[in-house]
Write a protein that binds this DNA or RNA. Sequence first.
DNA 1: TCGATAGCGTAATGTCATAACATATCGCCT
DNA 2: AGGCGATATGTTATGACATTACGCTATCGA
Lengths: 144, 144
Amino acid sequence: MAHSHEAHHHERPRDLTRNQELVLTTLNNAEAPLSAYDILDKLRDDGLRAPLQVYRALEKLIEHGLAHRLESLNAFVCCADANCHGRASGTAAFAICSGCGRVDEFADPEVTARLAAWAGETGFALERTTIELRGRCAECRKAA
Amino acid sequence: MAHSHEAHHHERPRDLTRNQELVLTTLNNAEAPLSAYDILDKLRDDGLRAPLQVYRALEKLIEHGLAHRLESLNAFVCCADANCHGRASGTAAFAICSGCGRVDEFADPEVTARLAAWAGETGFALERTTIELRGRCAECRKAA
DNA sequence: TCGATAGCGTAATGTCATAACATATCGCCT
DNA sequence: AGGCGATATGTTATGACATTACGCTATCGA
């Protein structure tokens, strides 16, 4: 039952293909970021056999704002706010804990604004922004 | 107390080893970021033969604040402000042009402050921050 | 019915990074 | 001088991440 029309102007969790669904579910069930090969390993029993199948699914999920790539980790997470986070709250930032590996996604409008301002002044046509924080989360600090 | 002679309170281009010197010079001469293997290729004639020699040199250069790693590119640039940029102006941000490949390094204290504030509120012990902007620089936009 | 678009599956390859091991060099302390 | 620790070195092999190239299938609308 595919819609012939785009009813919403923001990205909805539209119909995903089987592979996309599998990958997204895998990411959702994970506590920490997964590499493409991690995902592949978890999905062997579901018939996935080659990295490309995972990368292709990830590409679409990211396009739709359902997943993110963490550049400093070469790994992927599902979007914190499953439905509509993507473009809504500006650029997402990620705090990655070196202890437990968990990732906290947040957005700071002021940061977004400052970076946009820099781009404006400089004449830089900003397309995409990566913000990643590394450190230890509160939990892990207590546990130490 | 490692050295008794810290003449300057900011990092000086202290004595580099031969390999470190070679790698730094290569980065300085480059217009755009270089991957470790790019660097290796340029230094074959100088006797470098294995990736590890380059990675080890890069590691030290980055420690000393003379070079940066661009996570979203898996590549390296020399620090824009050769002598003193490192810790001085807070976290560095990088604008990477998808046209010419050139990288513009800058620092925005307000951005640094906001991220530090988030970390403070959250109890996240911030160790390292990555900020990378992708887009087209003013030059390349004109050229189009 | 045709062609365009999008997805799927597989093999091969390309690119980035590190482990493990062996050796060398320097400064420093005794 | 001898010995120790810290640091750098060179080499081989391997691991980890990502893409190119090719061919097939399904769907949709002109």
